[in-house]
């Protein structure tokens, strides 16, 4: 579905190669400053120029803006909700529909009924607890705010959904809801990338994980090898032990 070859943007990341199939959930993890947010913001068209190639459904694409990325079916839920996702002067339904205003608009006029209808469906599926659609976004708890942002991206009908720290500042109950929805979306053949610094979260939802260290992919883990210990070893710049590596290759083959 998505393939990335040699993507480089100094000084954040270099020579990134990976691919993801429809319905697959892959994780990206590492320590602070590993460059994974910048990497996916670049793929989403929010950062500056980069070298390398990005293929969507085997077509080479050059995404220069977030507007373009959304048109191509890419969605990115950013980290630091308050700074990067919440628009505090707008109400719940506006925050939940901003990404799809151009898609449904007729001659530039926002198609409000359509947005309400779409959001209503996601509101039930995501179990968002809220008052009126027109209440301020600040009236919601952290977990419900995050679900509204998630609903915004589901409204865009993405084929690739990138979730950067999706459970940051979210209560336990809402965390479980978010994990459930991630697994359900993968069943619906959406390719999902989860960026997280919490190893247990990655292990819980992902099929494979890429561990980054200082802007490069230090290693890839899957199945039995996805342990907190292995992830930490790679994240701190270490190499996998010989026998573990053998085991790891074996796993990849089957």
């Amino acid at each position: 579905m998505l393939r990335v070859e040699g993507l480089t943007s100094a000084p954040f990341f270099k020579d990134i190669d990976f691919s993801i199939r429809a319905g697959e959930i892959i994780g990206f993890t590492g320590l602070l400053g590993d460059g994974r947010s910048e990497l996916f913001q670049t793929i989403f068209g929010a950062e500056g120029i980069s070298e390398g190639k990005v293929f969507l459904n085997s077509d080479k694409v050059t995404i220069r803006s977030t507007t373009q990325a959304i048109e191509k079916g890419i969605a990115y839920l950013p980290r630091n909700r308050k700074e990067n996702a919440i628009i505090k002067d707008m109400n719940i339904i506006e925050n939940a529909s901003i990404a799809t205003w151009p898609k449904f608009a007729k001659r530039g006029i926002i198609y409000a009924e359509k947005h309400r209808e779409v959001f209503e469906g996601h509101r039930k599926a995501l179990r968002i607890k809220m008052g009126e659609l027109t209440d301020s976004i600040n009236s919601l708890s952290g977990g419900n705010q995050q679900k509204v942002i998630l609903a915004k991206w589901l409204a865009a009908n993405p084929q690739l959904l990138i979730l950067d720290n999706p459970t940051q500042g979210v209560d336990v109950g809402a965390k479980e809801d978010i994990y459930d929805i991630i697994l359900k979306l993968a069943d619906e053949k959406i390719a999902i990338v989860v960026l997280s610094s919490e190893a247990h979260e990655i292990i819980r939802v992902c099929d494979r994980v890429f561990v980054m260290y200082h802007g490069v992919i230090q290693g890839e883990l899957s199945g039995q090898n996805m342990t907190e210990h292995q992830i930490m070893t790679l994240a701190t710049g270490g190499k996998l032990l010989e026998e573990e590596e053998g085991h790891f290759n074996e796993h990849i083959e089957c």
Binding site: T67, N84, I86, I87, I98
Partner: peptide, 19 residues
């Protein structure tokens, strides 16, 4: 409405597909 979004939180607006 995108004007409001840009003025309220430029970063979030950009990351929501607003040019």
């Amino acid at each position: 409405r995108q004007i409001i979004a840009v003025g309220s939180n430029e970063k979030a607006a950009k990351l929501s597909g607003v040019n």
